[in-house]
Design a protein around this nucleic acid. Structure first.
Length: 286
DNA sequence: CGGAGTGTTAGTCG
DNA sequence: CCGACTAACACTCC
């Protein structure tokens, strides 16, 4: 699930809760989630303080004191859930089988304990996600695998045009490729194509300059809106103020196959593009 | 019960 | 460089 808007929601919520706290304990239920032996991982993390949490695309970067970083990728089903006394702040995909009121549960892979007795749970049903220990150097190396974040100041139209130039990839495959732009996943790729009125299977070299411009501006717009709504899949989200947010009410085509297009009324179609489900309107996307 | 489908990504092969 | 396909894993849904 989590794409840029969801990960950003998690990042900011989590920042408010754990920055400044000291890690006093770590429980590792799933050694294959981490990139060290459990003993080494614990030794390098316990006793350190959380300095900051940043993000590149869908990758979370937790900075600890003294040249130590924890890189977290939630992949399909990862969740980070913060718990302190009666306060539970879930970040991630809510689905059955992931009972956040009853922690730890069978999908809990890691538990961080903090000095004030609050806890951070890393849950991951399918175990695709990772929690990696890194120093500055390996952190930078990991980051270099990703293209510019959609919110990066350098991500402007000239940059976007350069990326598109000389490629004949299908538009959607391009938007999904994290090497080019980081943060866009299956849901927002479909929504961006729809908002741009361009078919997701259009080869990049067939796009007109005005279409490229439109795709660029809608990319920023859709992702920005989704962040403002706290992402798409926070159905069970709640915090101390009872705040909720859900971009799913604003989806126009994603999983809407068979339904009528909100723009022109014809029927939304589902196809596969690089083996990903893809939803679009064959009538008003050209 | 069997089979298809699922928000991510890395890797292989042609 | 490109797309097609598979695997990683564990569920839900029909």
């Amino acid at each position: 699930m989590p794409e840029l808007p969801e990960v950003e929601t998690i990042r900011s919520d989590l920042s408010a809760q754990i920055v400044g706290k000291k890690i006093t304990g770590l429980i590792i239920n799933s050694p294959k989630t981490i990139n060290r032996s459990p003993a080494t991982f614990k030794k390098d993390v316990i006793g350190k303080k959380i300095i900051s949490i940043s993000r590149l695309g869908k990758l979370l970067i937790i900075e600890l004191s003294t040249d130590t970083f924890i890189l977290i990728h939630l992949k399909m089903t990862g969740q980070l859930i913060f718990r302190q006394k009666n306060k539970i702040i879930p970040g991630g995909h809510s689905q059955s089988g992931m009972d956040i009121d009853n922690l730890p549960n069978k999908h809990t892979r890691l538990i961080f304990n903090f000095s004030d007795h609050s806890q951070l749970f890393f849950n991951d049903l399918r175990r695709f996600g990772f929690v990696k220990l890194a120093d500055q150097k390996s952190k930078d190396k990991e980051k270099s695998k990703y293209g510019l974040d959609v919110f990066s100041p350098e991500f402007g139209l000239p940059f976007f045009k350069t990326l598109i130039k000389n490629k004949k990839t299908k538009l959607k495959s391009f938007l999904l490729n994290q090497k080019f732009i980081s943060g866009i996943g299956n849901i927002y790729a479909d929504e961006i194509c729809f908002a741009s009125r361009v078919r997701p299977d259009r080869p990049l070299n067939s796009l007109s300059p005005s279409e490229v411009k439109k795709i660029f501006s809608t990319t920023k717009k859709i992702i920005k809106q989704a962040v403002a709504k706290r992402g798409t899949t926070f159905n069970n989200y709640r915090d101390g103020e009872g705040q909720t947010g859900n971009f799913s009410h604003y989806l126009k085509v994603y999983k809407k196959n068979g339904q009528s297009c909100p723009r022109c009324g014809s029927t939304i179609k589902r196809i596969k593009i690089s083996s990903r489900s893809t939803h679009f309107c064959p009538s008003c996307q050209n």
